[in-house]
Structures are given as C-alpha cells and as structure tokens.
Design a protein around this nucleic acid. Structure first.
Lengths: 195, 195
DNA sequence: TGTACATCAGTGAACGCGCGTTCACTGATGTAC
DNA sequence: TGTACATCAGTGAACGCGCGTTCACTGATGTAC
C-alpha cells in the first residue's frame, strides 16, 4: 500500500530517531538495518526507499543525536548544570539518550566520510555553544573561552567514555564521573586561574 | 605438524600482538579471527587451540595494548613529554601503536565482562602511573595528585578520540590535539592554581 | 639410550547464522485529462 | 469534478557474502617403557 508523501517523510524521521538511539546504545555495528526498521515499526525491505545505504543512515542518525543534545543544552539553565547532567550516573546508564560522542566517537574514526563530517559538525556545534555559555555566564575570559570550551568537551566526553567502559560495580565507574566533574566546575569558578 | 610447547606459547603471543594492533586500528568488530591469524602468520583453524573465543582474544589483546603503553611511559623522560607524545599528530595517525582507550574505549562498554575488566585494569594502571609522575616531578600537590591524574586521563583520551573522529583535513583535527595539550601542560606548570 | 605410542598445534574445508542489499509485488496516492 | 493510469512507500522472500566456530586430519613432539 502506498503512503502519502507527508506520511513517508514522517516515517523516515521515525527510522532516523530509532537508529539514533539504537546506535548510541549498541554501536553502529551492533545494530542492523532490520533492527532499526523493526524498532521504527516497519519491515526491513522499505529501508532503501529512504536511504542509499546503512552508512547514509549512520550519518543522519549521528546528526540527530547531536540535535537532541542541542535540545538538552537549551533546557539547561547554566553551564554547570549542563555539566552535572552530562556527567551524571543516569547519563552513564543511558547512552541511548545521551551525547553520541562517548558511545560512537571511537567508531566514527573508522566510518565513512559522511559520518565523520556529521561528527565534526556536531562537535563544532557543542564547542560553539560552550563558548557562548562561558561568555554569557561570565565563566571565562573571552580570550580564553574557545580554548576552555575545547578542553572542557574533551574532558567530559573522555570521562564518560572511560566511566562506561569500566564495569558497573568498579570504583572507577564513579570516580571517573565525579572527579572530572568537580575539576571542571572548579575551573569555571576560577576563570582566570590558569595561563 | 605438531609444534613444541615453547614454540606454541610464542605463537600465541604473536596472535595476541597482531590482534592488539589490528583491533586498535579497525575496532573489535572490524577485524575477524581469520584476519588476526593471517597477520600472525597462521591459518584460522588453529585459533581455538589458544583461545576460548574471539571475546577471550579481545580481552588479552586489550591488556597487551595497555602493556605497550606502559612501555611507552617508561621511555618518556617527563610527564609533559609523555603528554606531548600522547597528543601528537603522529599518534592520531597511528592508532595501532597508540593508547587503546581512544580507539576502543567506546566499544568496550558494549563488550564482554573480561574485556571490561581488562579495560578497568589498564585505566587504573594509567592513572596510578600519572599519580606517581605528578608526585616525582613535583607537578601537583600530593593531596590533589589522584584527582589531577583522573581528569588528565579523561582529557587526553577524550581529545584524541575527538581528533580522530573528525576528518583529517578539518581544522578541528589539529585544534582538538593542540588546545587540550596546552591546557594540560599549563595546569602542570601551576600545580596549586585550582581549588 | 632406543622404541612405540599418545598427544596436540596447526591445516583447510565446512557449517550455520546474521546482515546489507535486491527484487517482484501490492495497493493507496498523486496526476493527467 | 470525475475517471484512468502511473507512481512509489511498504512488504516479505531471497541472495550473497563474511564471520565465528567446528571438525577430521597431519605429523612432529612428548612420554612411557
């Protein structure tokens, strides 16, 4: 049965949304086209009406993940709040609804150019939004805001990746979230403290 | 043809060594048992004489990667030198011979308990060695050394993961190494600067 | 020390499964008149 | 506005390939006497 153009567009979005959460949870290679289509409520055959390949979906799903993060940022009142959420144990437990960088960043380096381009856009967007926040909230010297933002992203993304890799009951699981968070918050409180 | 016990043990090490570099370069899912055996100079059939499963090899290969990093650390005169090497563009280009965290950390969270246990050991070992260096080289207050080391590892591992994900010719590829490195070095130079 | 036999590391074919992709088909939608 | 036809989103079977794992076999090594 054919579907209306609008409905088809909507269905495509459903597929991307499903892929976005599933990839973050299980990795690009841990989820198949059929799994994604099933999660979106379809059979796998129709996939290629919407996407050229699984690779194309990966790029779209990654971009969607970053777009969701932008929403999360918009909902955070302050940068410190945002950091607390980012490095929370809830976030550690739920990669499907968290930043795509810790879960997919390592894989991205080995994926297709469109995936890497989507990754670069998402990373740049996160850095830019941190720069803006640092300025607005008076948390860094304007001349240092960009440097601060870049390092901050590296720290929180790295911390979450490390915390997720370690077994759930390992003391490091907690330490790898708590310590970098405390350190990041302390840095923001002392904007002129480092060179 | 049967092989001597010593030779067999040596062959096993060859397989682990090959797996260690190949997994870092292409990810656990990007390399098959047959690829690893071929790289080590064998046919794939003998694999199960040495390992219970591919999963078991993954754990051993990860541990080997961390052991190689320990060698690299031993060869670095100072912690700043070590950081420069870690965040060098050569290291970005050669994941096979670099720290397993940026390339495999994200995947580890989705792998078997033995792999995660090996990851936790490797991470703890890196943190401990950083703590030691910070103390020996007088780069941090003893009371803050552990916190510094944890955050430092998160920052450099996150930075390398981000830099590798971005396309090679993207400005972020350079910025994501340079900025966190400068920031880390500045922190070490001012050990008492933050709360 | 020498001999006979059991062991087992490595070989290469084969199995079975999952996955990305293709394809013929269906029938409601969109369009041309 | 109504009718006839073309389009195409979604279905479900099928294809082909790669991969983890198994297995019968080989022949040098290790061992028992």
């Amino acid at each position: 049965m054919r579907i209306s153009r609008d409905k088809a567009r909507e269905n495509r979005e459903q597929v991307i949304a499903a892929a976005s959460t599933l990839f973050r949870e299980r990795g690009f290679d841990g989820i198949g086209v059929a799994d994604v289509m099933k999660a979106a409520g379809f059979t796998h055959g129709g996939f290629y009406n919407h996407f050229d390949s699984k690779n194309a979906l990966e790029a779209d799903a990654l971009a969607r993940g970053f777009a969701e993060m932008a929403d999360v940022r918009r909902r955070s009142k302050t940068l410190p709040d945002l950091l607390k959420g980012y490095l929370s144990s809830a976030s550690r437990r739920l990669p499907s609804y968290s930043c795509p960088i810790p879960s997919l960043g390592g894989d991205v380096a080995r994926h297709s150019p469109p995936v890497r381009a989507a990754f670069a856009s998402g990373v740049e967007e996160m850095i830019s939004s941190f720069v803006e926040r640092l300025g607005e909230e008076d948390l860094a010297e304007p001349s240092q805001a960009r440097e601060r933002a870049v390092t901050l992203l590296a720290t929180i993304a790295g911390a979450m990746m490390l915390a997720r890799g370690v077994p759930d009951d390992h003391p490091l699981a907690r330490e790898l979230l708590k310590t970098p968070l405390a350190h990041a918050l302390a840095q923001l409180a002392a904007p002129a403290a480092d060179a």
